[in-house]
């Protein structure tokens, strides 16, 4: 039995309530999860699901109403944010507008009492790491969104945090830049070996970057696992819906199509179009959505709509045509819960 990898952050039945004690808003409701050291951990969920509050509980800006948060095994309740071995990349970067880029990056070392020459050298090194060499003398206002994002990253990393918290850091960037930054963040995390805790509402981002994903809903973690687990084996209808691109089949529809009489999920890629009557179920084409590499064909069947993802090379049916749908028996994935 190998030794367990040490936990960087551990939530032990953590609850955070806001508002009056009589009718509290349960922002975080009984969350227990362990984040292993060196892991890229994504907290995924819709807005208001508690993921950002969880991040703020780690950084210390919020304190748990009950439960414990351990950072490297140490109970964190009594430790203020400025003495935790974590740093945050804020959602809108929170760069100091009155300081130059260099002084922004050197802020942490300066507060720690590092002398001017050393901290400026450290700042330049970090700026080089995020490919912003030569920008040190500018003010944040003179930078583009992507550049500000890198400065925020450099400002956090210069402190050599053991855990880096990222609060939707790519949310304000356009698609192209976002994809480039996703790759850079991922490779940065791998080369530095720091634990990243990444909050996002973008399932594509979470699945493509993270080693492990926790899906949040209503202040609870509904599923935690590898991206493959989450995508291929969603535990509940919420996860299947939120992570997207999977069909959710009611027990009746599943049974009608030859599956178990349970809630099941079925990925669009697994569904093939056939001649009417030849597949597991027959229906009429309701709509076609051209997505470039694939086209999503939504078919109305007696038990509800099903969507097939058809690669660009294959012929497409006309809208209103009657088609059959077929999938391998093992493509149906059973989920928990009746309702």
């Amino acid at each position: 039995m190998p030794l367990a990898t040490p936990l960087a952050v551990e939530f032990d039945n953590v609850t955070r309530h806001f508002g009056p004690a009589g009718a509290p808003v349960r922002a975080v409701d009984g969350v227990s999860v362990g984040i292993t050291e060196g892991c890229f951990f994504a907290m995924l969920g819709p807005s208001g699901s508690g993921k950002t509050t969880c991040l703020r509980l780690i950084s210390g800006f919020e304190r748990p109403t009950s439960g414990h948060i351990r950072i490297f095994g140490q109970n964190s309740e009594a430790i203020p944010p400025n003495r935790r071995p974590v740093n945050t990349v804020f959602q809108d970067y929170a760069l100091f507008p009155h300081l130059t880029v260099r002084d922004n990056v050197a802020y942490g070392p300066r507060m720690a009492g590092v002398d001017r020459r050393t901290r400026h050298a450290a700042a330049e090194e970090m700026l080089a790491l995020v490919k912003l060499s030569g920008y040190g003398d500018r003010k944040p206002a003179a930078l583009s969104g992507g550049q500000r994002q890198r400065v925020a990253l450099a400002r956090a990393l210069v402190n050599r945090p053991r855990v880096l918290l990222l609060d939707e850091p790519l949310g304000a960037l356009d698609l192209k830049l976002r994809e480039a930054m996703q790759e850079e963040l991922k490779s940065l995390q791998q080369s530095l070996g720091i634990t990243f805790v990444f909050v996002t509402h973008d399932q594509g981002e979470a699945l493509s970057m993270a080693d492990r994903v926790a899906v949040f809903n209503d202040g609870k973690i509904v599923q935690e696992g590898t991206p493959q687990d989450i995508y291929e084996r969603p535990r509940t209808r919420f996860v299947a819906d939120f992570v997207g691109s999977a069909n959710v089949l009611s027990p009746e529809l599943s049974a009608r199509a030859g599956g178990p009489a349970r809630w099941t999920s079925l990925r669009g890629e697994a569904v093939a179009l056939t001649a009417p009557g030849a597949g597991r179920i027959t229906g009429t084409v309701r709509s076609l959505r051209y997505m470039g590499a694939v086209t999503r064909v939504t078919v109305a069947t007696p038990g509800g709509d099903l969507t097939a993802t058809v690669p660009a090379a294959l012929p497409l049916p006309a809208q209103g045509a009657t088609v059959g749908l077929h999938w391998p028996a093992d493509a149906l994935h059973e989920m928990e819960g009746g309702a």
Binding site: S59, G60, F61, P80, P81, N82, R83, V86, N87, T88, F90, Q91, D92, A94, L95, F96, P97, H98, Y107, G108, R110, M111, A112, R155, A156, N159
Partner: peptide, 25 residues
């Protein structure tokens, strides 16, 4: 408000946050 949190997060004591962030702004 997030500038004050950022300062806190970067290890500044409340006094340092006052001197280096609140007062200049």
């Amino acid at each position: 408000g997030n500038l004050l949190e950022a300062s806190d997060d970067l290890g500044a004591t409340p006094g340092q946050t006052f001197r280096h962030v609140i007062l200049p702004l």
